[in-house]
Every structure is written in C-alpha cells, then in structure tokens.
Nucleic acid binder design. Structure first.
Lengths: 262, 262
DNA sequence: GTCTATAATTGGATAGAC
DNA sequence: GTCTATCCAATTATAGAC
C-alpha cells in the first residue's frame, strides 16, 4: 500500500503474488528446470526482470513458493493435533484421529481444484487458489536432489513429524519404537501417493481410482487401511528369514505387547 | 565386435552401455534436465557426439535407460507370480506371497548398492551394477510430467498391474472391487516410498528408518502392514460423512463380505 | 564409429532509463 | 518498482574430417 497500484482498480494482486502464482502453475506442470523465467513472467503478465527484483534469483523464487504454502499447512496440522489432545485431556488419542489430523489438511488442499486463474488476467486470483497445483509441486520437490530443496523441506517438516510421532507412540504403546518408525514410513508413503494423485503415479494404480472422489470419501477409505497396518501383528522376533517360504501367518489379530523387539 | 575395440583389452563395455550407465548415475543424481550431455559423456569417457549417434537425442537416451531396466524387472515379477500360481494349483494365493512377488524384485534392486563404477574407467562395469541408482531414477520419473515419460511407464507397467490386481482380487474376495483398487493404490504408495528411500522423502519419515536394513528385513516389516491394510474392516456402506466426528470404530476385526459397496 | 568444431537456441541475470 | 535491451554462459544437436 505504498503508492496507489499501477492501473487495475480493486481486486488486482501485486506483482510478487502474481509471480508466485504463475510459478506454482508452471513449476508443477513442467518442473523447476524446464519452466523458464521467461515463460513464467509471461504467464504472470509481469516483466522478466521482476523476478530478480523481488526474489533475487530463480532459486529464491522456488524457495518463496514453498514457504508461502508449507507454513500454513503444517500449522493447521499442529492445530488439529493440539485440539485433539486438549479434548483427550492427557489420554492417548485414537490413531484414526491422528491420521486424520495429519492427512486431512493436505488432502483437502490436494483436492482443491479451482481452475488455474491463468493468463496475465486479473480478478479472483485470490490466495492463489487451487491447492492441488501446489501439492503436485510438493511431490515433485520430494524427488529433487538439490541440497537446498532438501534442507527447505526438512526444516518445514521436522516439527510436525516429531509431534505426530510422539502422538502415535502414545496411541500405540504395543508397537516397538523401531517398528513404529517403519510403519509411519509406510503410512506417509501411502498418503503421499494419494495426494501425488492424478498424473504422477496413478498409472500403476488401477484405473478405477480417480480423483473425482471427495476428500471425506478418500479419508474414509485410507484411515481403516492405515490403522490396520499400524496395529498389525508384529513380525516374529527373529530378524531373519521372512523370505518367500515363511508360513502365511494369515489373519491373526493378536497384538503382542513387547516393546523394542531386537 | 565389429573391429577390435579401441584400446582396453578384455572387460571393457561398448560405448552404448557406457553411456547408459553414466546416464543412470547422473540422471538419478541431478535429474534429466540438469544432467547435461556434456557431463554425461565426460563421466562415461566417451565423445559428446556419441549420444546422438547411438540414441538420436537426449530424449532417446532417457527412453533407452528405462527400457533396459524395466523389462527384466517386470518380467521377474510376472515370473514369481506365475510360480506361485502354479504351486497353488488354481487356488487363491496368500496375499503375503502376492505382495512379496510384486515388491521383492524392486526392493532387491533398490538395495543393490554396489559402488557406482564411475569415471571413464573400465573393468567391472558389468551389467551397469547397483540397481538402487535406477530405482531413484524411477522415483524421479514418476513425478515427471512429460507426456512421453508417462506413456513409457504406463506401457511397461500395465501388464504387471493387471496380473497382480487379478491375483489380489481372487485372494481377497471379501473386499469390494472399488475398495480393493484404493487399497492397491495405498499399497503401491507405501512400496514406492520405501524404495524411493534414501534421499527422497526420508526426511518426513523418522530418522531411525535407514536403508541399512536388508531387503528381507524390510519385507518382513512391510508385509504384515500391507496385509493388515488390505484385509482391514470395510468402511461403513454410506459413502458420506466419515469426517473427524465419526466414532472411533476401534479395532474390530470383522470382515463384512459384501461385494461392490455403493 | 569416433572425433573436432561449430551452429543454433535458450537460459538466467543485470545495467540503466524511466 | 517497472521496463527495455543486452550480456554471457550453457545447452542440444549436427556437419564433416578421419
């Protein structure tokens, strides 16, 4: 609000945000390398030099794109978890609720498919819209090997991961720590795959699985799957020999309560 | 074998394979865009122009890298499944075995960490070694948006997915088709996350989870998790309203046998 | 089949006027 | 803050000698 904006009247957004929005679109569509600043500024309807003015470099722009989104997303996760813990008054939480608190925010974001608000054009760019673009971008970032990218993601995630890990540890005392670490790993994998969704790896899934589902519907499917996995019978104590010849130990549902198995 | 190879004596590999090996290394490390043909041919110890001679273009090289690996990998999966089905003589397979047949080959490949055989140098480049490099590359390919890449992967995967889907459908008759499609999706996600492993998304997992494990050990952990998920109690019939207020339906282990729920 | 040299493009970044 | 014009580095791809 320094001086009156250039031409547009009311609903226009400033150059900085126009760039961030266009970057989100084009990075998600073509990757960080192939999306050129030229294409990007054209999409945003701003001048080429504006990127360097506002973000210093292309790398700075990439960083800004992630910071804008990840902070509120993870804050929401922590809020939901904190609300659950308040309601539980110190008791352990049902694992279902923990999963929902972690996955809900990102799932809802990934299914927010408002049209792209492309072109240099104007009104209703509000808040950059359509979170699923950012989610695709996030999936892309996970396979990035750049040092800076990894550090960025790690910094944004470390707190939520620790908090949710603690909550799950209390919720599932019968699962040894190391086993739980792996099961969280599997859980995160299933979640990531779902939100990566549409054009990433869907090919390997069956073709009936489409993103036309509502978030609640997906949640209703994935929660029982993950809770069953998290509370599954523990593998036998011996670390070795679960090869293809091990007996199919079927569907027992006993929960051994040993902690820290080997 | 047309004329005697340039200088090296016995164990040298031809230019074509040297390029493929170097491409696998550098594409996995830096991505398809950032790994230049210059860096790549330097790594391989071959001339820059050789890439275009042997593969037509950089895109052609990328295609060749994937084709060399995916075909045998998926053939192995189909072989293992076929062996199981022969042994079962027409009966349904235990889901544990199906998961192992699908995941075993890629898991073993991902944990094959023979050193990179880098540099222009020579002997023991055999078969390109260390499959985990290719696995990382595969993870990267999944987030690629290029049309050609998607078609390539889809073509390589369609048969295995169909065959394994059929096997799981027979193994889990109590799970409705659509539900099973989702559960396969979750399953593939957990698997992908594990093999993407080391530097991809490990940050979000807990730091105790390391790739130092043996394939059998990982398999022993993931199989019970996935089988429990695949055989989990079905969500209630109504499609709506599994929001954060649904009752925590805990750990029943009843399996409703309805097929095709809404 | 392999090499050198170079063409043809495209990219990120910046200087300096406004 | 925005713009034009331009620099400079790096890329893929190819032509043509060997």
């Amino acid at each position: 609000m320094k001086t009156a904006p250039k031409t547009r009247d009311i609903v226009n957004v400033n150059t900085r945000e126009r760039i961030l929005n266009a970057a989100e679109v084009l990075f998600a569509e073509h990757g960080f390398e192939r999306a050129s600043l030229r294409a990007l500024t054209a999409e945003a309807g701003v001048n080429l030099a504006a990127v360097n003015y506002h973000f210093g470099s292309k790398a700075g722009l990439i960083r800004a794109v992630f910071e804008r989104r990840l902070a509120p997303l993870n804050a929401e996760r922590l809020n939901e978890l904190a609300a659950l813990e308040r309601a539980a008054r110190g008791g352990p939480l049902p694992p279902e609720r923990i999963i929902e608190a972690f996955f809900g925010p990102v799932l809802r974001m990934s299914m927010d498919r408002r049209p792209a608000a492309r072109g240099g054009s104007t009104q209703r760019d509000r808040g950059a819209g359509s979170g699923h673009r950012f989610i695709r971008l996030l999936g892309r970032a996970h396979t990035e090997s750049r040092q800076a990218m990894r550090e960025l993601l790690e910094a944004e995630y470390v707190e939520v991961v620790e908090r949710f890990k603690a909550a799950l540890t209390r919720a599932l005392p019968q699962v040894p720590e190391k086993e739980l670490a792996w099961r969280m790993h599997f859980t995160l994998g299933a979640m990531s795959y779902v939100i990566a969704g549409t054009d990433a790896v869907q090919l390997s899934a069956s073709y009936e699985v489409r993103q036309s589902e509502h978030p609640e519907s997906v949640m209703k499917r994935i929660v029982p799957f993950l809770v069953a996995g998290l509370t599954a019978p523990l593998p036998e104590a011996g670390e070795r020999g679960a090869g293809a010849n091990a007996p199919a130990n079927g569907r027992r549902d006993d929960r051994n309560a040993e902690r820290k198995a080997a």
